[in-house]
Design a binder for these strands. Structure first.
Length: 737
DNA sequence: TCGCCAAGACTTTTT
DNA sequence: GTCTTGGCGA
């Protein structure tokens, strides 16, 4: 019997796809056909079980995953997916909240603030509350608020035990009130409000729970508490929930993701059927074995025995470079050799690293050798200044009371409206009980006849000019198309000449605006509101050509450079993982938290399992950090891989630094010839773990000690009294206890 | 008000 | 190294 939906699946995959009603947990190792199972499951429900698409909700984390799933399902079933809820968690929540805004502190046409908007609101809240932003960094406070939201806490739920908690709770409250004034929500709110609305209003919960006969979830290991609770409520009527994930690939803990939701799922649904997908279709057995040796050291997970029919394959190549430059040189040399032999093309290669900062050296090395490369994700499209500016202009036209947007663009391009003027404007508005935008519009429309003309003083004319522009855009916004409005704003503000200074960078910036205009064109029919509401939920990966896709303008392809985080879900024939040094991978910030250390291990595991044929693990004996050499230890993860699986290509003796120097922008002053000789680090007097006493700060614990370029010993100490300090050994006079 | 310079930070970043 | 931020002088 032929069955196109099931025939080409392995037994485990088939078991998952055809699982009966109830709760199903599919634990899918890397390369085991997770996406395939999910799409076939959808198709199976619709085609074989006669489930109307309308009854299904399928959630993913990225737009890319959602789009991919949709297009694959469409080719599998002979009907359209009319009425299905298929999309990212955030998009699905936004849809639900727009319908149920009656229960919420904002209107249904709310906008979603992105990260920069959020941060500017946090800063304003801190200022308003007179909280010092040095001791309470905006990003840190925001992270704390975000964590609270992911844990389903409202401001009143935040514990107020310490002064810090108190600060967070107060800023949280203020921040929410600002969001509300602007009719805006942040990313976390989408999840928080959805979970809470389902929790607190039985009639809403029942409405959606009844509707969704089937709930399907991708990347389940990356859900946070809010998402978990939401899923539980959505499936509380029909109890059909099908989740796919892999605890070992959970790498977003710092965003609230909790892989233990996998364990929680099994506990909450004791009758759930658990299916393990262990056959791997991507890598060689060598890669899988090595990866397993690394990941098996983690606890609280379901052990998996990944196997492949692809054979043993090549050994993993380990290479210890003399320094960071040599590390990059090795990558470039190796790739060049492959390409010369004709055995591979550039897009077979990926170079992965822990931190974006590491991309610089490899980029320079690739550029130097003329190899084409593609950098994933470093510069974000929507984060770019010019793109953000334009979006704020549009948001302002759509909603003049949006103060965040207004304050951003009121003086862009510079039109003589400074801090002082803005402050008077704000005070005037507050006294009149109006928003800043409304005052501005009044000034623009009535000129010196406006009631506010004298109140704002000398710069009144400047403000009125901008107000006039704004009023004009407002009056035409419903009469002309979105792109025409776009052009009009660019024209009226002289924005093009402001950003495009005819340098290469200026041209790039202008190109970004042209790209944004192209995106806006897709919303010509749906209109500006829809465009703005969706903007924040579109990630950069949707606008930047992705690694696996063919780019017509680059037939030969390019080497892909990306962080380990960005690598999840992708695969390459040859994978280089750079910087396998203690402090880098695992990252030093994870040093004293076992949970974070476990996540570093998973991150490495994700990277390793991206490789189809050949994996290269690299490290450098020393690298340049700030202005000194940093001598690292090999990553602890390397020791976990059995040496039988590894081919050690040893250590290069020559740094390429000299050869670069002539035609690259290495600063010659910072690299004296003396330091090009490989030098052994001098012994440090203080060692990590030592207890020391200082006359100033009392007792403390040495975290790290190193010799910098001037042979000075720098010691990092955690003092009981004052916390972390970095001191020079020669000056601090630390007594070893 | 603007633009320049110096100081300090700097993990990852699906939405 | 490179980015942002804050202070200061024109």
């Amino acid at each position: 019997m032929q069955d196109s939906l099931l025939d080409d699946l392995n037994p485990q995959q088939r078991l998952a796809v055809t699982a009966g009603d109830g709760q199903t947990l599919v634990l899918a190792g890397p390369g085991s056909g997770k996406t395939r199972v999910l799409t076939r499951r959808l198709a199976y429900l619709i085609e074989r079980k006669g489930v109307p698409a309308y009854d299904i909700i399928a959630v993913t984390f990225t737009n890319k995953a959602a789009r991919e799933m949709e297009s694959r399902v469409v080719t599998l079933v002979n009907q359209n997916l009319e009425g299905i809820w298929l999309g990212t968690f955030h998009a699905m929540c936004a849809r639900l909240l727009r319908r149920e805004s009656a229960y919420l502190p904002f209107k249904s046409n709310f906008v979603i603030f992105d990260e920069s908007d959020q941060l500017s609101l946090i800063k304003r809240s801190l200022r308003e509350l007179n909280i010092d932003d040095k001791t309470h960094r905006p990003a840190g406070v925001h992270a704390a608020i975000s964590a609270a939201k992911n844990d389903l806490q409202l401001p009143k739920d935040v514990p107020r035990g310490t002064y810090r908690d108190e600060v967070v709770a107060r800023v949280y409250e203020k921040y929410q009130s600002y969001l509300s004034i602007n009719n805006a929500v942040d990313f976390d709110d989408l999840l928080l409000y959805t979970a809470r609305i389902l929790e607190e209003h039985p009639e809403v919960r029942e409405k959606y729970a009844r509707r969704f006969g089937h709930v399907l979830v991708d990347e389940f290991q990356d859900t946070n508490l809010a998402q978990y609770v939401m899923l539980k409520h959505l499936s509380s009527y029909h109890h059909n929930i099908f989740v796919v994930g892999d605890e070992d690939q959970s790498i977003y803990r710092w965003r609230g993701a909790d892989y233990r939701n996998v364990l929680r799922f099994e506990k909450d649904f004791p009758k759930c059927e658990t299916i393990l997908l262990e056959q791997n279709y991507r890598s060689t057995q060598t890669v899988l074995d090595a990866a397993r040796q690394v990941i098996d050291r983690n606890r609280n997970r379901t052990p998996k025995h990944l196997f492949t029919e692809r054979g043993t394959g090549n050994k993993i190549v380990q290479y210890v470079a003399v320094d960071d430059i040599a590390e990059s040189a090795f990558v470039v040399d190796t790739i060049s050799q492959y390409l010369k032999s004709g055995k591979a093309s550039a897009n077979d290669f990926a170079v992965m690293y822990r931190t974006n900062a590491q991309s610089r050296l490899i980029e320079e090395a690739l550029m130097h050798s003329g190899l084409p490369y593609r950098l994933v994700g470093a510069q974000r499209f929507y984060g770019r200044r010019e793109v953000k500016d334009m979006i704020c202009f549009l948001r302002l036209v759509a909603n003049p009371t949006d103060e965040v947007s207004l304050l951003r663009v009121i003086n862009i391009p510079p039109r003589g409206i400074g801090d002082k003027t803005i402050l008077t404007l704000q005070t005037t508005a507050m006294q009149a009980g109006l928003s800043v935008g409304e005052v501005l519009l009044d000034l623009g429309q009535k000129g010196d006849a406006s009631a506010f003309w004298s109140a704002v003083g000398r710069p009144a004319a400047l403000l009125a000019d901008f107000g006039t522009l704004l009023a004009e855009w407002q009056s035409v916004k419903d009469k002309i198309s979105l792109t025409s409005l776009f052009d009009r704003i660019v024209e009226d503000t002289g924005y093009e000449s402001y950003i495009n200074d005819q340098t290469e960078e200026g041209n790039d910036r202008w190109d970004n605006l042209v790209e944004l205009r192209r995106l806006a064109f897709d919303f010509e029919e749906k209109g500006m509101d829809e465009f703005l509401q969706n903007l924040a939920l579109v990630s950069d990966q949707d606008t930047i050509p992705q690694a696996e896709s063919e780019e017509p303008d680059r037939p030969k392809g390019a080497v892909t450079l990306l962080t380990l985080h960005a690598a999840k879900g992708l695969e390459y024939n040859q994978v280089f993982i750079m910087g396998l040094d203690e402090g880098l991978l695992p990252h030093s910030r994870s040093r004293d938290d076992p949970e974070e250390m476990a996540e570093e291990r998973r991150l490495f595991y994700v990277g390793m399992t991206r490789a189809r044929n050949q994996l290269y693990l690299l490290r450098a004996e020393r690298r340049r950090m700030f202005n000194a050499w940093d001598y690292g230890e090999p990553s602890r993860f390397l020791a976990d891989i059995n040496s039988d699986l590894v081919l050690n290509q040893g250590r290069h003796g020559v740094s390429r630094r000299e050869t670069y120097e002539s035609d690259f922008r290495w600063s010659t002053t910072s690299i004296t010839p003396k330091r090009m000789v490989v030098e052994t680090p001098k012994e440090t007097k203080y060692k990590a773990g030592m207890r020391v006493r200082s006359a100033n700060w009392g007792d403390g614990l040495v975290l790290e000690s190193k010799i910098d370029s001037d042979s000075e010993e720098t010691v990092d100490v955690h003092f009981e009294s004052v916390g972390f300090k970095r001191v020079l050994a020669s000056l601090a006079n630390l007594e070893i206890l």
